[in-house]
Design a protein around this nucleic acid. Structure first.
Lengths: 132, 132
DNA sequence: CTTGAGCTTCCAGCCACTGGAAGGACTATC
DNA sequence: GATAGTCCTTCCAGTGGCTGGAAGCTCAAG
């Protein structure tokens, strides 16, 4: 399929797809007329990319995730190690989102409207998290 | 406290903190010597920013979230509407992270290593998600 | 065979930082 | 009090990740 259909099916703009090809994230076949030609697995990879990018993974991290996704030798120890790292990262992100959610929900439902530092729950939520 | 301590306490580099001030995300007091002067509530806001940025919210979205966080008139309907929108976004992100997690975990633990499209679970996970 | 949409490449610009230079301020040691 | 080293300041330039626009080729419809 052409880049337009791939864009529609994946939710990524054509510009971005071309950019991803330019930086070597996802190379496409070419039709006789020079047009890029995408398969459904390509579309899956594009969706995968869209998702992981929107969740705060850098392009380089997405490259790792994608290689994990596409790797035919997923048995190797280093690939598994990368996957473990990424899984841990994802879990951390989920936890942070959850606490962000709690914070926001608390702000909306429970807090009186005056100045900030007198609410221990908010202090806890804003103060915790990735303090490295 | 100086920008260095605020950076250390928040996990954001000084450069980024100055940049956030430049674009009006978080204005700091100034000491007599011209140094920026941060309070603990400022540090909390910085942590808040660090977190929401790393979770894929744009700076403009973070500005909204932060205004929500700092808003003294949180009772107003439009502010609550923004909060609701953001809460929904956060929930969506959490769901996407969870499915990304499942996908990755599945790739690591259950799949044989040959070519992609013959695994229905992967097809499902990579194919679902935000198809708009 | 023209029109219009979609594709191509290329170049420029934007957003969100990030590095580096040049210089002033603070702290510690001599 | 001079010196060294670290931290702060501003400013300017560069990078990563797109995104818009121009110029031109291709294709399907009328």
């Amino acid at each position: 399929m052409n880049i337009g259909s791939a864009a529609e099916k994946s939710g990524l703009p054509p510009k971005t797809i071309r950019y991803y090809e330019e930086i070597g994230l996802l190379k496409a076949d070419r039709a006789e007329n020079g047009y890029r030609d995408y398969s459904m697995p390509d579309v899956h990879r594009l969706r995968f990319l869209k998702r992981s990018r929107s969740l705060g993974f850098s392009v380089e991290e997405c490259r790792q995730l994608l290689s994990l996704y596409g790797d035919k030798e997923r048995e190797s120890a280093d690939v598994k190690a990368i996957a473990q790292t990424k899984l841990a990262e994802i879990d951390r992100k989920i936890a942070e989102l959850a606490s962000l959610r709690d914070l926001l929900s608390h702000l909306v439902h429970n807090c009186h409207g005056d100045d900030r530092p007198d609410c221990p729950i908010i202090d806890g939520l804003a103060g915790s998290g990735t303090v490295q």
